[in-house]
């Protein structure tokens, strides 16, 4: 039955070539840990994506309870943590996942670097990967403020002071991110918008580029 459904759709939209491009490809021996155990280093990219999916899903559930204003933000997180069924698990996954995604991405970057996989013809994919890295750090920085406890508040204050010390542009960057001159109500809503709309949007676009290029060029060959 599924085959008939597939064929029915395929006849109208001709999806087989698309499907071939996305999923139907061979995995070479030198990246397959089943054949060479040391090839586990090639798993880090996939695991980064896996954790990223966890982050997106847990984050979607967190926004059901989170309120981005300075009076209620803390109490909505507290409520989520202690009153909502499985709230502590979902918030825990988002909290620890943020660290884990950095770890996995870091290991993936090191693998690509030390196997020289960024070399021609894959330069653009490396650059896109580094942009993903920066977006992830941005997500970590903006997400850290959202619980609005003292740790969040003062870390953001220090971070924005560092941004403010960039010559010429620093003050403008700082004011833009602050949404004014102090870390306050505007900063929180701004960071919330950046954390849940701007950066994830950029992240998905960059990931699409990253995956398009890896499928187009194939994984780098054995050393």
């Amino acid at each position: 039955m599924f085959k008939n459904m597939y064929n029915w759709i395929d006849e109208r939209l001709d999806i087989t070539p698309m499907w071939r491009d996305i999923a139907d490809h061979e995995v070479p021996e030198h990246v397959n840990p089943a054949h060479h155990f040391s090839a586990f280093v090639y798993c880090f990219g996939g695991l980064t994506f896996f954790i990223t999916v966890i982050q997106i899903l847990s984050g979607m559930f967190l926004t059901m309870y989170y309120v981005p204003d300075i009076i209620n933000a803390y109490y909505s997180v507290d409520y989520l943590q202690h009153q909502v069924a499985f709230g502590a698990i979902v918030r825990g996954m988002h909290h620890w996942g943020a660290s884990l995604v950095i770890v996995m991405m870091f290991l993936h970057t090191l693998r690509v670097f030390f196997t020289g996989s960024y070399k021609a013809p894959r330069e653009m994919n490396w650059v896109v990967g580094m942009l993903i890295f920066f977006v992830m750090l941005g997500l970590g920085f903006t997400g850290y403020l959202l619980p609005w406890d003292n740790k969040a508040y003062y870390a953001t204050k220090v971070g924005l002071e560092i941004a403010g010390s960039v010559p010429y542009l620093g003050e403008y960057i700082k004011e833009l991110m602050n949404g004014g001159t102090i870390v306050g109500a505007q900063t929180l809503t701004r960071f919330f918008a950046i954390h849940v709309f701007f950066l994830p949007g950029a992240l998905l676009a960059l990931l699409a580029g990253h995956f398009f290029m890896i499928r187009k060029q194939g994984i780098s060959g054995p050393l």
């Binding site: 997180v77 825990g92 508040y153």
Partner: peptide
């Protein structure tokens, strides 16, 4: 390890 949460931000 539950995710940490301190006291509300006090500028």
């Amino acid at each position: 390890e539950p995710a940490p949460l301190g006291y509300p931000a006090d500028p």
